[in-house]
Write a protein that binds this DNA or RNA. Structure first.
Length: 322
DNA sequence: GCGTCCAGGTCTACC
DNA sequence: GGTAGACCTGGACGC
């Protein structure tokens, strides 16, 4: 654990593309955080921290507008004054990460014609998909920790790794733990990581992943976006511990990441009944989702999993909550 | 209490 | 190329 005091700050305003619901976008209804599970949110303001451009940044984001006329005040905190060029890059990355540039209108037009999606876009109007920074590494660790474990246990493993090996950003009288950089994990003995963070066999995969990032490097999320969706996924599949499901979670082009749990949820929605065997149903459910929703598969997946409780009521189907 | 099963997948050794 | 089986850990469940 390394504590970093971020004493230099500056404030500016972000005007997201409307509609943009701040609350739904920075703290998803299913509990997904923006950058780190340790960020602090009081309903109007989010204090969080992230590495952008290899620099630790503290953030205080406050909503000043409405869903149809959104405005966000962003106060960023750094160790020292950055160059104008670096500051410009950080500002652009932040806008990109919070999904402020994304226009939802085309997806909404598509969704309102769909018997399932028309409910979720109504419930979650203005919710934007966000990304966890410019580095793939935190997403890849998260994907590995989600494998073969109930969500509660995945969260425990994640908290443990961040607390033990992440940075500790101190700013605005707040403390936020941040995902570790690959350099911090690449030199670890996997058996030590497994014992200290109780991640079991995943420790070998995480250390191997970190070593690959340090020794060979890996494209940023923004660089992967410039590739075709297929090429981006192929690149992600080169990472140790990352298979089809995990690559779909990470891919900035969006995939349709169906696992054992979501196979049950989407199987229920598509076919009106719970699959006999969730694990065996993964392939069938995934291809049905892609067939129905095509290029909007990720947005459809994202909206549905954030809205299961309401969707269960509206469609009169018992959906297993996350 | 104690034993067994299995979970938001992936990798590898077989065939 | 396809496919069992192994893999950490801890909670749920049956006895």
């Amino acid at each position: 654990m390394c504590t970093v005091n971020l004493n230099y700050s500056l404030t500016y305003e972000i005007k997201p593309v409307s509609p943009y619901n701040f609350n739904l976008s920075v703290r998803k209804p299913a509990g997904w955080s923006l950058f780190t599970p340790f960020e602090i949110y009081n309903g109007k303001t989010l204090w969080t921290a992230v590495h952008l451009e290899s620099t630790l940044i503290g953030l205080k984001l406050s909503s000043k507008g409405t869903t149809n006329n959104p405005r966000i005040t962003a106060k960023i905190f750094l160790e020292s004054k950055p160059t104008e060029e670096k500051l410009d890059k950080i500002k652009k990355l932040l806008i990109h990460c919070i999904g402020a540039e994304d226009d939802l209108r085309e997806f909404y037009a598509f969704a309102r014609q769909d018997r399932i999606l028309r409910y979720v876009v109504d419930d979650l109007y203005g919710m934007h998909s966000t990304s966890t920074g410019d580095n793939v590494f935190p997403d890849a660790i998260l994907a590995i920790l989600l494998q073969m474990a109930p969500l509660k246990r995945s969260n425990e493993m994640m908290d443990s790794i961040i607390r033990m090996y992440g940075d500790n950003a101190e700013f605005d009288r707040k403390t936020v733990y941040v995902w570790p950089l690959p350099q911090k994990l690449s030199s670890l003995n996997p058996s030590v990581l497994a014992r200290e963070c109780k991640v079991g066999y995943r420790a070998k995969r995480i250390v191997k992943l970190a070593v690959k990032f340090v020794e060979e490097g890996f494209p940023t999320l923004q660089e992967l976006e410039k590739l075709s969706p297929e090429d981006s996924k192929t690149k992600l599949l080169e990472l140790p511990g990352i298979g089809d499901y995990s690559a779909d979670i990470i891919n900035p082009h969006g995939g349709f990441p169906i696992d054992v749990w979501s196979a049950e949820v989407f199987g229920n929605l598509f076919f009106g009944k719970k699959p006999d065997n969730n694990r065996q149903a993964v392939k069938e459910v995934k291809s049905e989702g892609i067939r129905r929703w095509g290029k909007w598969s990720w947005m459809a997946f994202f909206y549905v999993v954030q809205d299961l409780e309401s969707l269960s009521r509206r469609m009169n189907i018992k959906l297993r909550l996350a």
